[in-house]
Amino acid sequence: MDDALFTASNLSCLRGERLVFAKLNFALAAGDALLLVGPNGSGKSSLLRLMALLLRPFCGGLYWQGELLTEDPDAHRSRLRYIGHLDGIKPVLTCHEALTFWAALDGTPGPATRAATALSRAGLAPLTDVPGRYLSAGQKRRLNLARLLLAPARLWLLDEPTNGLDATATQRLEAALADHRDRGGMVVASTHTPLALPGAQTLHLDDFTPQIHDPGAVS
């Protein structure tokens, strides 16, 4: 793949004393999507955290246009949006305040108006002035996902984004993902529920779980 932007080669991840996955490779070009599937504990979240530079690989490397991510971590951070398991919602901040803060922290110009636009695009406009403590789990998720709409970023890393979402919100997310990919953005998502990502590559993480050789076992 010559036009691959974001690649991994021979990537291994060690958590505690356990090798979660080993010798993992992928290559993503502009507009591509990568769906991570595998049983619990197969390393989907770890891989996404590696991609966000929140974890360091045990061996192997992640590359952007052939250059190691760790060469310029700030540039990588500025082109990614990460949605983890935790939504980071403060009980006392309203939806609009929370989004404005995240927009401002990422250095987006005009954070307050950006936040208002993102809220209405995420269908959360009626909740603009509602504090976080009154939001349901699904609404918190949608508020966290609305961070994706604040400013363009090349790479979206989504850790089980559909958790807690209803059918309408899932469709809205799928539309946002399609729109993002049409503009040349890339998506890496882990999911247990069906998520429409047409033409996405699928990475079965259990294929990369190291096999433990037990010399005592009779094969």
Binding site: A52, L54, R77, L105, G107
Partner: peptide, 8 residues
């Protein structure tokens, strides 16, 4: 972790 990923 979101702050760690922000540009700051």
């Amino acid at each position: 972790e979101l702050m760690a990923l922000s540009g700051l």
